[in-house]
Design a protein around this nucleic acid. Structure first.
Lengths: 200, 200, 200, 200
DNA sequence: CATGAATGAGAGTTCATTCAT
DNA sequence: GATGAATGAACTCTCATTCAT
């Protein structure tokens, strides 16, 4: 089992990083939120960057794990792809802070960004695998698999974030009601993007 | 005509901000890149934040202006929507640095982010207007206009950025060849998302 | 006649310096208050310091000139001394901002402070001359002339400033009513300080 | 016991602030004088202003504490008042730097000045209490207690500062010899100001 | 005489990181 | 394992002064 203190730090860090972004997040705030001394963080993590990377990997891993669960519930690639979209949107709504970091910190040339993108790549891989299987079974005719995966990922991401940040204050009940339109929107896009070859 | 020095600063700032993000960008670097003294920037802009907001507004305005040009070339909402997608992808490829900032700095609660999102909202508005007109003419059956606009915007954004940052080094010739698959991918998604109601 | 622009600058500078003190006063503010360009100030004055010294000299000179007028109205040294006190208090009330600078900028080792103190010394000289004449005529028995002059000057200064700054907002009517008690207070102190030798 | 480092900083700060005034004092200089890093000051004080206010409060508190000691040594209000004057002058001579700040930074509308004036008000209160008691016992006939307290405070302050800054260099032996005339001067003023009503 | 854009040295403040306890 | 006082490099922003027009 992971050390208890590390959990404390992780939980605090995800809040603070997501609230402020990597640069604006202060180790002081993380320490205070975790209820430990600042030195303690450095006892467990070499640097702010290492803490961040560990955190992001864990966050994306959760998304991946949930996605894997969803995949098992469906047989056909079509259903699986739709399930992935639904999962991603639900996950974003439930982890709005992480979602923001996913877009904010994913692009760039810094080490942490490259590492983070690699982890996101694992998730995109999952989508691509379903697509390839669908192509193989003749269920899809996707010509540009990586592009299509990115597009779906981006559509789902921005739909949720735009919704989250267009509200004055995040109202859990309200956002819950907003999920179905978002899911349906992306779902419809996905379905066309993969089905036939001579534009819908 | 705008003052020459301000142009110098603007051009330098877009480079530096895009390279490093808002927080990591240093006013010293912007000044050096612009070939002016640091104080000169502060003579023309009240703060780093004001410079950034001015810059982003100008950048998004360029995207909007180009989009308006494209819209004039087409009559039917369908063609107009596809033109908007194509325009956005081309614009991103040509202004990769701005594109990155568009996602990186758009979400958050800080003043500059709220202002920036408002400007992006102007662009989304453009998409939505085409959608509403298409709905009116019976060409589209879009149930959730804002969500669909966000999804298209997000799909086009992430497709390009993922491509740009998956390459070791940005190779202009290579990226030029990559445009058509990206355009086609999003175009297909768009076409389904708007055409008929009982999934494609 | 002094150049018109110089007057503009002088009048603006006294306001700004008195409002903010030497260090906090900005040449930009003075220029704006004077309605001239910043460069214009430097056309007429070598530096901020030179402007300040010129200004202070002029301010104290006004106090001295008024004092000289008052002195002419009275014959006996006793009446003259009391007139000086009354003059100083009235002058302070009417030029509260200058009064503040008089204490704020008078003590220190910087060139401008030394020069300023020298000018204030001219005013103290005036007091001392009356004292010496009073001593000669047997009207006073002042043992320590410079100390006594300083004490009177200090008493009058602090009484007014303490009053001015103890009020939430400076109310001209209110402060006008407060003059007599201040004058009487210092006047009584003065009278004893100079009359007999075995404590009053 | 207060933290050792804070003492280091306090002692250095009083030197530097008094030497240069609030605005000209540099945090770098204070840090160097204290033998700590600049960041260390900010670990203990939120800002330059907070450091200054803390310092001034402590300085005036010392004056107040000493004054309270002096008051205990005397019974009659007359003796007590004279003791206060003597104490103030001695204190100023021994703490010339603080004395200068007392006048330089006491008047103005900035937060630190208002707070500082409030602390000085505590000292003036002490004087006023003695005056009121003297009035009650019939020993004094002071009509304007606050004005008289201010006047005495101002007289004592300016007498010392004028003396300190009229010397080319501060010579401890010389200034020691100058104390009696200063004390006597103010003492005589005080005695009249409070004794009888029909001018001395 | 007058202007105001440009300058750059220098100020206060922040914060990731270290290390003696 | 854990602490938190101490650090100092680096940052944004200020403003007196200059000078070409």
């Amino acid at each position: 089992m992971r050390h208890e203190t590390v959990d404390l730090i992780f939980n605090a860090a995800i809040e603070v990083f997501a609230e402020s972004g990597f640069d604006q997040a202060k180790m002081d705030d993380i320490a205070r939120a975790a209820g430990v001394a600042k030195g303690t963080i450095y006892y467990h993590f070499r640097s702010k960057e290492e803490l961040f990377v560990g955190l992001m990997n864990e966050g994306v891993q959760k998304l991946i794990d949930r996605a894997r669960q969803y995949l098992k519930l469906h047989k056909s690639p079509t259903d699986q792809l739709l399930a992935l979209v639904e999962n991603q949107i639900h996950f974003y709504v439930q982890n709005g802070k992480l979602a923001k970091l996913l877009l904010n910190e994913a692009f760039g040339t810094k080490t942490r960004q490259v590492q983070f993108r690699r982890k996101i790549g694992e998730y995109l891989q999952l989508i691509e695998e379903v697509m390839i299987e669908g192509n193989r079974l003749g269920e899809f005719q996707i010509k540009h698999v990586p592009e299509t995966a990115s597009a779906i990922f981006g559509a789902a991401s921005v739909v949720v974030l735009q919704k989250l940040y267009s509200m004055e204050e995040v109202d859990p009940a309200r956002i819950e009601r907003d999920i179905p339109p978002m899911v349906e929107t992306v779902r419809r896009m996905v379905l066309c993007g993969i089905k036939d070859s001579t534009y819908c």
